[in-house]
């Protein structure tokens, strides 16, 4: 990384560099205001994020609240070994990864498509109105969303199931059948978060130069072509950044949501790391064990973020850092 920095050091407009140290000093002096602006943020991250980082050590101890970090015994990789050798590990890993992939494939593009659709709307009032409607579900908690799905889909007088019965003559236990579990989770996620997800893309789209569209129209470009050549490139770097950052939380499944949807009959596909950790950590007080699982998830996230960022840069994108 050091090398990267020094490569970008030779700037146009500055005099030819004499020595490395010399340039460094000159650059720092030139950017003194920028560094001063960085200061509060750096202090913030050190105090509130890096100082507590010693808590990671919990994963390598048998932590108890009353003995604390100093008094709890070190146990090395005991918790990791236990985690990887659990009979459920394979199932948890598979369920979590499948759900994560579904999320990236089906959920992630949805807000982008919707913002592109909204972007094509020329009537500002209509656009604002639709925007306001679609972002509401974000504020409805999972408990309520799952409750509404129950009312719609239960086999005991659920509205949609009754309708299905009228049409096809049979009911489907959407909420119980294992094969429907992932579809339900993704559908609910899309329903709740699609509108909220558009906010950031609409902000990115607000920066597009309108003259580009006019020029394209004069050249006779169709709506699809304009979308492809002007609109999408304008939000491309935002999409890439969000995608990379999402990979960092790849193994996070949204505990509350999943927890509310799991039933004895769909647990074999529904149980994920997050719900497993809840049972372990919350109901049984195994902090160190939960913390070890958390660390594993983070490590996977780190590899994915670094990998995807490297790839993005390879393709000439800015990436995250």
């Amino acid at each position: 990384m050091k090398q990267n920095v020094s490569i970008s050091a030779g700037l146009p407009g500055t005099k030819a560099p004499r020595g490395k140290a010399d340039t460094l000093l000159r650059d720092i002096i030139r950017d003194k205001w920028l560094y001063l602006m960085l200061l509060p943020g750096i202090i913030y991250f050190i105090i509130f994020k890096y100082v507590p980082m010693y808590g990671v050590s919990m994963a390598f101890m048998d932590y108890k609240p009353y003995t604390g970090f100093l008094g709890s015994p070190w146990v090395g990789f005991k918790h990791f070994e236990r985690f990887f050798s659990e009979p459920q590990f394979g199932m948890l890993f598979r369920n979590t990864v499948i759900l994560a992939v579904y999320n990236l494939v089906f959920f992630f593009p949805m807000p982008i498509i919707l913002s592109l659709m909204l972007n094509e709307v020329r009537r500002a009032k209509f656009k604002n109105f639709v925007q306001t409607l679609i972002y509401i579900p974000h504020f409805v908690s999972w408990v309520v969303v799952v409750g509404i799905f129950y009312i719609l889909l239960t086999t005991e007088n659920g509205i949609l199931n009754e309708l299905l019965y009228q049409i096809t003559g049979r009911k489907i236990a959407f909420l119980l059948e294992a094969e429907w579990f992932r579809t339900m989770i993704i559908t609910q996620s899309i329903w709740k978060e699609i509108g909220w997800g558009t906010v950031i893309f609409l902000a990115a789209l607000a920066g597009v130069d309108l003259q580009q569209y006019e020029a394209a129209r004069i050249d006779g470009a169709s709506r699809w072509r304009q979308l492809w050549h002007i609109t999408l490139p304008a939000i491309r770097s935002t999409i890439i950044i969000l995608f990379i950052l999402r990979l960092g939380n790849f193994l996070d499944s949204g505990f509350e949501h999943i927890f509310l949807m799991i039933t004895p009959t769909n647990r074999e596909v529904g149980e994920v790391f997050d719900t497993y950790v809840y049972t372990k950590g919350m109901t049984q007080g195994q902090y160190s064990y939960s913390s070890a699982v958390g660390l594993f998830k983070s490590a996977v996230g780190l590899v994915l973020v670094l990998g995807s960022n490297w790839l993005a840069k390879k393709f000439g994108e800015e990436g995250v850092y």
Binding site: K64, P65, Y66, T67, G68, T283, Q284, G285, Y287
Partner: peptide
């Protein structure tokens, strides 16, 4: 848990009979 960890305990604390608290009891907290 935070109260126990930081030693900011009140004089009377309501707890439940769960593994975590049981082990605290065994440790003479």
């Amino acid at each position: 848990n935070v109260m126990i960890a930081s030693g900011e305990l009140p004089k009377i604390l309501k707890v439940s009979y769960v593994p975590n608290i049981i082990s605290a009891m065994q440790a003479d907290v």
